[in-house]
């Protein structure tokens, strides 16, 4: 339903997205997981036609976004990262505006407005001005405005940033419902747990490039059976040679004066031996992570997902 082919977007000399390729099928949620500035919004904006790709092409429901924009956009729903609402109007008025923008009218429009209000749990506040809403309620309304016309393809750009747990539940529930109805959903986030819970497949994006793609299980298996060990402290003058020789399954990720990261098999069992090799006071903090998206991201980039 959504097909991104060799998409590259440059801002002047700076390449914000490079050779991005993926497909999102009907009834599938595809996640783009990456830290701030990774190029998620850039990718979404190229798909929605707000930006023209420097190279590559995007197809929505088989219509090229640059060549056949009107047809492509007709199948598309967009929930932008930044709120796009009239704060001095009430929720129903905003929905009415966006419903008409997508060509809905009459009784069907009214019925859809009522349905999405139910879906995001704002029916009781529909007649209140948006300026009186909490941040989470605004996000829910922003989301509702993008699904009024029942798009076949839906782009969600970090829809849960900064929302309360209740609003997050509403939003994630609504996205799962849309998937069940056959919508192709592209979901960007920098929350690993959200991606793990929601997405059928995930692309990990960093510095404008997709560095790994697969289902959660497939991505986990890229970590092998290894765990990730992170040590904080003062490692100046210490060399990783001993660890490389003695730790089972050792794989160095990062060796910095304050932080040391490496992979190891059965980390819990080896940990006391490892810590014993350092002089007292060298290691101030120890963390062991089992294989997950977070540890995979660190393995792939040497950096944490959250900054």
């Amino acid at each position: 339903m959504i097909k991104v082919e060799a998409l590259t977007k440059k801002y002047g000399d700076f390449t914000a997205a490079e050779d991005i390729n993926f497909e999102v099928h009907a009834g599938e949620i595809f996640g783009l997981l990456g830290p701030n500035g990774a190029g998620k919004s850039t990718t979404i904006n190229c798909i929605s036609g707000l930006m023209v790709p420097s190279e590559g092409e995007v197809y929505i429901n088989q219509h090229a976004v640059t060549g056949d924009a009107i047809q492509a956009k007709a199948s598309l729903g967009l929930v932008p990262q930044d709120l796009a609402l009239y704060e001095d109007l009430n929720g129903a008025e905003n929905l009415n505006f966006w419903a008409q923008a997508y060509g809905l009218s009459g009784q069907f429009m009214q019925q859809r407005i009522d349905e999405v209000l139910q879906q995001v749990g704002l029916a009781a506040r529909a007649k209140d001005r948006v300026s009186t809403y909490s941040g989470g309620m605004k996000r829910r309304l922003n989301f509702a405005c993008g699904i009024l016309h029942q798009p076949k393809a839906l782009l969600l750009d970090e829809p849960t940033v900064g929302v309360d747990p209740q609003s997050r539940e509403h939003l994630l529930g609504a996205v799962e419902q849309l998937k069940a109805q056959g919508t192709a959903v592209l979901y960007t986030t920098h929350y690993m747990e959200e991606a793990e819970r929601l997405c059928d497949r995930i692309g990990i994006i960093d510095h404008g490039k997709i560095i790994a793609v697969g289902s959660v299980d497939e991505l986990r298996s890229q970590m092998g059976e290894k765990d990730l060990i992170t040590l904080q402290g003062d490692f100046s003058g210490v060399e990783p040679d001993w660890l490389a020789a003695h730790v089972a399954g050792f794989e160095l990720i990062e060796w910095q004066p304050q932080t040391v990261r490496f992979m190891a098999e059965q980390a819990a069992e080896q940990l006391s031996a490892i810590l014993g090799r350092f002089a007292t006071g060298t290691v101030k903090q120890t963390a062991v992570q089992q294989a997950n998206l977070e540890s995979l991201f660190i393995k792939l980039t040497g950096r944490e997902l959250r900054d």
Binding site: S48, G49, L50, A69, I70, Q71, K73, A74, L76, L78, P80, D82, L83, A84, L85, Y86, E87, W98, Q100, A101, Y102, G103, C145
Partner: peptide, 18 residues
């Protein structure tokens, strides 16, 4: 600035109607 025009630009034709 409030994002309405960019979002309208992602619809088939609503920017003209706007």
């Amino acid at each position: 600035g409030n994002g309405v025009i960019p979002r309208l630009a992602a619809t088939p034709k609503a920017l003209q109607a706007y």
